[in-house]
Amino acid sequence: MNFENRFELIRTFAAVTISLILGFAIILLVSDEPLSSIYYFVIGPVLKTRYIGNVIELAIPLIFSGLATVILFQTSLFNLGAEGVFYFSGLMAAIVGIGLSLPAPLHAIVAIAAGGLFGMLLMFMIGYFKAKWNASELVISLMFNSIFYGIGLYILNYFFRDPDIAGFASFKMQKTVLLANIIPKTRIHSGLIIALVTVLLAYLFLYRTKWGYEIRMTGINGDFARYSGMNTTKAIIIASIAAGIISGIGGAVEVIGMYDRFRWAALPGLGFDGALIAMLAKNKPGSTIYAALFLAYIRIGADLMARMTNIPSEMVFIMQAVIILLISGGKFLEKYRQKALLREVKKNA
């Protein structure tokens, strides 16, 4: 491994470690029983098969949103629309699940396709606005999240809400649409396979197709892309569409994999997590799997801790923010890098 890659890895680890230390510090500060809090936070997720299952279940949607964000970040697009896509595509899939009657595998495929299609449309708009008119993709995507959340809520409340059950939920989806459980004693569903296949496809797309190449070069250096004759407008739109499809599929898979009714009363937050996953994964599709597992692990750990002690699980968000700040801080560990670089040069000289 060359020096730069090794340094990047060290930076990532340092950022994660600092955030974990911060997490422990918070626990020590506010917890009445700090040791057992830390115990549940760190060890909790591996205590039971069910908990390990929880980690993997949570990693599935995170992989999708991570992948979508990887593609966007590689194009230098700060688009957080995966959040709204997750919500609305999930709803679309649920509607297909409730309303259509189709045989088993086909029903799920149609539901997922509906989710992917919606994600594609929404992200296409954001990408088009950016590529054509340079409209801030960040602000527009965040507005879109709120807009489609509102529209989704309306559709749900007026047409698909089940008045007979307490709480907020749609009518029951038909059994044919639900994804099969693949590991007993957990809720891990066949969405895991779809997620892993998507990782592979996203890798092939980004690194082995001409669109992927154009997208990446556009993201790294737009002047170079234009000098080479690439159409950067097109590259931005294609990247947005690809990210939209992936996050749309992610939302659909999550809803028909984990639930039998649509139950999101608020934006699920899974799309936003894509930003952290992409940064931890250094924008590499394959690494999103590990980054998603890591985030899922500390989420489940924090949940268990919250259940057993008095520490709210939102502690994880604070850690997440610290990781993003440090990893994206170009000068973070710069002194160390300079020193190490000098050593490296001397060694080779």
Binding site: Y213, R216, M217, I220, N221, F224, S228
Partner: peptide, 16 residues
């Protein structure tokens, strides 16, 4: 600014 994508690999720059 124009000739290379600096943070991409040598092989990728050669492919442009």
């Amino acid at each position: 600014t124009q000739g290379v994508a600096a943070s991409a690999a040598i092989s990728e720059n050669l492919a442009a």
